[in-house]
Design a protein around this nucleic acid. Structure first.
Length: 509
RNA sequence: GAGUCGUUAGCUCAGCAGGUAGAGCACCGGACUUUUAAUCCGGGUGUCGUGGGUUCGACUCCCACACGACUCACCA
């Protein structure tokens, strides 16, 4: 009976997937470590680390070959990334969140027991706490000569290959932790992301702007043209939406006497996924009372230039193209840009017919119902947008495509609005905020008509927002910046998935 | 949503006129007191993405599906 059991186990074992075999191999090793040494790497708690590896590198970088800093007592910790076990002297590279440094384990220094423990039980991927002193090897590498060490935790799965790293995009995005272990440059990108966001915050705080939080879950998703995610609140028994923008809530706060507010947070849009779009993305929106869109333009420059400087990308190369984030950015009206790029002067059109005729001549497909204002934006999208490589402010969008922006008093069919384009992509959007409740209501009605006509991305009618405007919104400048895209351009990242730690992926199987 | 390409060992990749796989690293066993992708000796750990089909025989050819990458469309 027992024999049969063993046979079954053997058969089971031989039928195991290799991955499971590796895991069970490591589990067995862990068990042996527990039984033979009475040591459990998973019960270890704190290690009183005194030095980062970067500190060691900086402080003892001046050591000459074979020179030892005998008096130094370094107490540090990290993950074992390479391992070269020799007979009585072994080397490893250990990595912490600052850098990678070599460790040297010697029989003479550690003694038979501890050196034997190292050789027998320490594997790639394990975490070690180490006490020792720095020296420089004959081959010239700064190294810690280990006087004693503690096995702080064990890796039960093999690390990706040390030379080629982890390339499989699917694994990189789905198991970002593995990507982050294997590819230090990925960690660097996300550190830069954090510094960019901190810089945005710092600039805004310097201008006395209050950080606030507004609802992500709400019964109306407004403030942008986009399809929302719909969810359901059981207790309230009603459909709810994930926000597509923070705009309408933030402006309510300006009505509520906060002079300057901003929010950095996730927006959610139920649309396509590609290298520039993730269903959830991070946006910064800021609103300043008594300011206009020109102030926002200056603020945009200040924020982006500071962020670029922070990560050393003032003059940078994005995917092989030079980009300069030096003030001032180019400024041009949408109308002038269209005129420059395709010789069509929308300022000369007095009727929609003339614009449609121009569109036909340029090969645009039209239904015959478009206004000259809508066509201006179509021309811009078709012929201009992708050519705006260097940071460029595009000004004065038509009212028709700007339902929340204040009209240009000199030209009321257009708005005091701008979008910032970089590498042909929109990075920021801003305007003097519409504060006329009657005009706002009209524009919501116009959007509602578009929605009823089948435009799923038309604005929702937000009655309470109109009520808020009726209480009085001061003249206000508002600005939104797409943080992910900004990070992409400042870190030379090809895909938005490379600047989002856990990008949206289809579930496996 | 459409098109193109991809999916082979833990990782990076070969492979094939159709005869059920191979390298390096990793891993397991051994040697070695200064390595640097250490070296040397021994070991291949795989339902070749999934499901069908053609065939005596499929990792290879055909079809469908899944997932991913890129391009396009919508959008930030």
């Amino acid at each position: 009976m027992k024999g049969a059991t063993i046979m079954e186990e053997k058969e089971q074992k031989s039928a195991q997937m290799p991955e499971e075999e590796i895991l069970s191999q490591r589990r067995e090793k862990l068990e042996r470590l527990r039984n033979e040494e009475g040591y459990d790497p998973f019960v270890q708690e704190r290690f009183l680390r005194e030095h980062s590896l970067a500190h060691v590198l900086e402080t003892y970088g001046g050591l000459q070959e074979n020179e030892h800093a005998e008096d130094a007592r370094i107490v540090t910790a990290g993950r074992v990334m390479t391992l070269r076990k020799h007979g009585k002297a072994s080397f490893a590279h250990m990595e912490d969140e600052t850098c990678r440094l070599q460790l040297c384990f010697q029989f003479d220094v550690l003694g038979e027991k501890e050196y034997g423990f190292f050789k027998k039980w320490v594997d790639m991927g394990d975490f070690l706490g180490v006490v020792g002193h720095p020296f420089r090897t004959q081959r010239g590498e700064l190294t810690i000569l280990v006087g004693s060490f503690t096995l702080l935790s064990k890796a039960m799965r093999p690390l990706p290959e040390k030379w080629h790293g982890l390339k499989d995009t699917e694994v990189r995005y789905r198991q970002r932790y593995v990507d982050l272990i294997a590819n230090p440059e990925v960690r660097e990108t996300f550190r830069k992301r954090s510094r960019i966001i901190n810089t945005v915050r710092r600039v805004l705080e310097n201008h006395g702007t209050l950080e606030v939080e507004t609802p992500i879950l709400s019964s109306i998703a407004g403030g942008a043209n986009a399809r929302p995610f719909i969810t359901f609140h059981n207790a309230l028994s009603q459909e709810m939406y994930l926000r597509i923008a923070t705009e309408l809530y933030l402006k309510r706060l300006i009505v509520g006497m906060f002079g300057r507010v901003y929010e950095i947070g996730k927006n959610f849009r139920n649309e396509g996924v590609d290298t520039m779009h993730n269903p959830e993305f991070t946006a910064m929106e800021v609103y300043w009372a008594y300011a206009n869109y020109e102030d926002m333009m200056n603020l945009t420059e200040e924020i982006i230039v500071a962020a670029a400087k922070e990560v050393g990308a003032t003059e940078t190369v994005y995917q092989g193209t030079s980009l300069s984030f030096e003030r001032p950015f180019r400024r041009a009206t949408m109308m002038d840009l269209v005129k420059d790029h395709c010789g069509v002067d929308f300022g000369a059109f007095e009727t929609d017919e003339e614009a449609r005729a121009a569109a036909k001549r340029k090969g645009l497909e039209i239904t015959g119902k478009e206004s000259r204002f809508l066509l201006l934006s179509r021309f811009f999208e078709e012929f201009v947008e992708e050519k705006l490589v260097q940071p460029t402010f595009v000004l004065k969008h038509p009212v028709e495509i700007s339902p929340l922006a204040k009209r240009d008093p000199d030209n009321p069919d257009y708005t005091n609005r701008f979008e910032l384009f970089v590498y042909g992509k929109e990075v920021a959007n801003a305007f003097s905020e519409l504060n006329d409740p009657f005009d706002q209501k009209e524009r919501f009605l116009d959007q509602q008509a578009k929605k009823e006509a089948g435009d799923e991305e038309a604005h929702a009618f937000d009655e309470d927002f109109v009520t808020a405007l009726e209480y009085g919104l001061p003249p206000t400048g508002g600005l939104g910046i797409g943080i992910d895209r900004l990070v992409m351009f400042l870190t030379d990242s090809r895909s938005i998935r490379d600047v989002i730690l856990f990008p949206a992926m289809r579930p496996r199987e």
